[in-house]
């Protein structure tokens, strides 16, 4: 609870000079805000399970086929992009800015490929958001998540711009860390979405 004092007390003595070892105020704020994002997706999942429970017929309705393998591959890519993002954070924490930037760019590419795959899958689906409640939920949930991915990629773009300079901007690192929290969160949400929409029948 005593955030400030505790963070100071647990100060480690690292082998390498780490520029950062205490949650930044931006980081704390981001985590608090992600709590609300968690509830937001919680609301969507609650809607999904309520409608599913009320539906007497087989679920998902007949005629709905999803490509579990293809989206599984891109799920893996998104999960890996969390790793690359974290790698970027570690590099930045050790002051290796250029390496950090390349890891961020790699993360962006992986995120973009995920969004692109989603667009492809959407266009292939034989059902739409208006077909039935299942379709509505499927598109709303994957769509809103996709929007979050796109937002994350945009945020990384801004990060790159911010990190472009040569100087040492102290806020830069905490911004990067905050985006990484967000990115991990979006990732975890996708794992839940994939399990619920694609695996759970």
């Amino acid at each position: 609870m005593e955030f400030v004092t505790q963070a100071l007390a647990t100060k480690k003595t690292p082998r390498e000079p780490i520029t950062f070892n205490r949650p930044s105020i931006l980081g704390v704020g981001t985590i608090v805000w992600l709590g609300s994002e968690f509830m937001f997706f919680g609301g969507l999942f609650a809607a999904y399970f309520t409608i599913r429970a009320h539906d007497g017929t087989p679920w998902p309705p007949r005629g709905i086929h999803l490509d579990v393998v293809q989206s599984g591959i891109f799920t893996l890519i998104l999960v890996m992009s969390s790793v690359t993002m974290q790698k970027g954070v570690f590099e930045a924490e050790h002051g290796r800015k250029t390496a950090a930037k390349w890891w961020i760019i790699l993360t962006m590419i992986m995120g973009l490929s995920f969004v692109a795959n989603q667009a492809v899958e959407w266009s292939k689906n034989a059902f739409g958001p208006q077909t039935n409640a299942y379709g509505s939920l499927f598109y709303m949930m994957t769509g809103i998540h996709g929007l979050h991915v796109i937002l994350g990629i945009l945020a990384m773009g801004f990060l790159l711009v911010r990190m472009a300079g040569r100087g040492r901007d102290p806020g830069e690192l905490s911004a990067l860390q905050s985006v990484s929290y967000y990115w991990h969160f979006v990732d975890v949400v996708w794992i839940a979405l994939y399990s619920v929409l694609f695996l759970l029948h």
Binding site: G43, P61, P129, Q130, A133, M140
Partner: peptide, 30 residues
Amino acid sequence: LISFPVLTAALILLYADRHFGTHIFTVAGG
């Protein structure tokens, strides 16, 4: 932080029902 996001989610779904033809809160369509 616990409650408002759930309202936001509900409002988005309602808006989708009204404008994108989804069937979340209507009996028709399940």
